[in-house]
Nucleic acid binder design. Structure first.
Lengths: 283, 283
DNA sequence: CAGCAACGATACCCGCGCGGTATCGGCCTC
DNA sequence: GAGGCCGATACCGCGCGGGTATCGTTGCTG
């Protein structure tokens, strides 16, 4: 009955579905089933009722879920407390600047609340650096969007947003309910400055080289659309001024919201941050 | 940072000595050293100061020790709570009857205090069954002494007591400060009834067949010594009537106080019991 | 000062556990 | 009754966590 196993159990107990829990845990379903069986054996109690109707918790499972959450929570705080005692009591979070995602600040606040002893610093960067200063060592963890060059980094997906084209409201295509990249052929797209991560640049240009004004921040993008008829893309689900229209693009891979950090194994402060972020973005 | 690793850490932190901690954990020293190093790496903090003078805890180590104890304690209670929720809320403890070891009852009391939801039943047996009814399925766990046939059981040593010969106070050998089995050659030793575990019988007869009165309980043994001049052995460190003398035997293997249970993996109630027992007997 | 004992670290080996893919079997839907 | 969904099972390969043997440092001792 190790902590890892309890994390598996909590995932299954929350999803009430082995397949989905396995996805959440970034593993395949059979080892998860086996781990739960072993847990049931170790605990000497059946934890789930597997029936055709679905998976439900037994009374023993309910008790274990409650206790496991408390235990894992405590273990997580412990890690951070130890790291803080060792002197690493500051966490610098990089956020993609002018972010249209309001979750980021709330997340930082939640982390502060959970680990009062840790000083959290926020560093916002413009759109020219999708790693938010991770590569330069300016931040411990980046809360950003893909894609970007991940060599030497570890990336954890938090959510995947479909993207849409941003058009002026009076654009002929603005009234369409969906578009493909082909519909936008020949348009001017906004560009990022020289030296920007190529895969990032390429993604937001729909996969091919384009012409257009160079921008550095979200506001500049929007202005470029309004004033010059440039097009661009943005994740769906965020608010934009009324003069702009966002039309879903059906042939674009979704934009992944990710947490990223240097190296492979995060320090406890980062680990806890990612954990909280994962849970926060799940809702 | 799994629970097993934290148990390792607590052992080292309490012993402040890798070798002794390894003994306590029933493992060898190198894997333990490696596990602690890995833990230090995962925690991102040095936990021990290794110097020629010995091993000491760093501030981060102190924090981790405190947190680990709380976490392991909670995990232990969790197991028992889950088992209880699944219906297994009774633990029957077998104790070697007329036990001269006062720890047993106190241990049961401690367990009751720790797990109020679990009903603890005590079953005392006489000296004819060193497994205290374990084989017959009458008890879940036996708190007893070795040696006995361990096939199908799991045995966990709690303590090892040197043994001494029990003699009448006016015996010529009673004034000696130590004896060997050879000194007792030709004496009558008390015997256990037919069918008693052979290795148990053999041990308390000093390794060879003897003649003498058949006894079933400790009191009978003592009476046999007092009235018939029979000799026998007893663990050192317990009180006996003034008419009896106990002289250490230098060539007898110590008598092992053990906890034992059926099968290989104990249910959570038994596991917790053994854990508490191990800690209690360490003092 | 040489020799030794104590103790943690290192090197290396081996078997088991855990995670993977492929497939099965029961049950529901259409 | 065919297909799909979902958990269980079978089987495989690798890495981790155990083991033994040995080293390096330190401090005590004759």
């Amino acid at each position: 009955m190790e902590l890892r196993t309890l994390r598996y159990f909590v995932a299954v107990a929350e999803e009430l579905h082995f397949g989905r829990a396995a996805v959440r845990l970034h593993m395949s379903q059979p080892p998860l089933s086996r781990a739960i069986r072993k847990l049931e054996h170790d605990a000497g109690a059946v934890l789930f009722e597997r029936s055709a109707a679905g998976v439900t918790l037994t009374p023993a499972g309910v008790v274990l879920l409650e206790e496991s959450r408390a235990l894992l929570d405590r273990a997580d705080r412990m890690r951070v407390r130890v790291a803080a005692a060792a002197g690493a009591a500051t966490l610098t979070v990089g956020i993609l600047g002018d972010s249209t995602d309001p979750g980021a600040m709330r997340l930082a606040a939640a982390y502060r609340r959970r680990h009062p002893g840790v000083e959290v610093r926020i560093r916002e960067t413009d759109l020219t650096d999708p790693t938010c200063g991770l590569r330069a060592g300016l931040v411990d963890v980046a809360l950003t969007r893909g894609p970007f060059d991940e060599t030497g980094l570890t990336v954890c997906e938090l959510r995947a947003d479909p993207v849409g084209a941003v058009l002026r409201a009076d654009d002929p295509l603005a009234c369409r309910d969906r578009l493909t990249l082909a519909d936008l052929a020949g348009r001017r797209w906004f560009q990022f400055p020289e030296g920007t991560d190529p895969s990032w640049q390429s993604y937001w240009n729909g996969g091919e080289p384009r012409e257009g004004p160079v921008v550095r921040a979200v506001q500049e993008c929007l202005q470029a659309v309004l004033w010059n008829g440039t097009v661009g893309m943005t994740p769906l689900g965020h608010d934009h001024p009324g003069e702009l229209a966002v039309v879903p693009l059906t042939d674009m891979a979704p934009s992944r919201v990710v947490a990223a950090w240097n190296g492979s194994d995060p320090n406890p402060l980062i680990r806890s941050f990612v954990r909280i972020a994962t849970a926060a973005y799940r809702d």
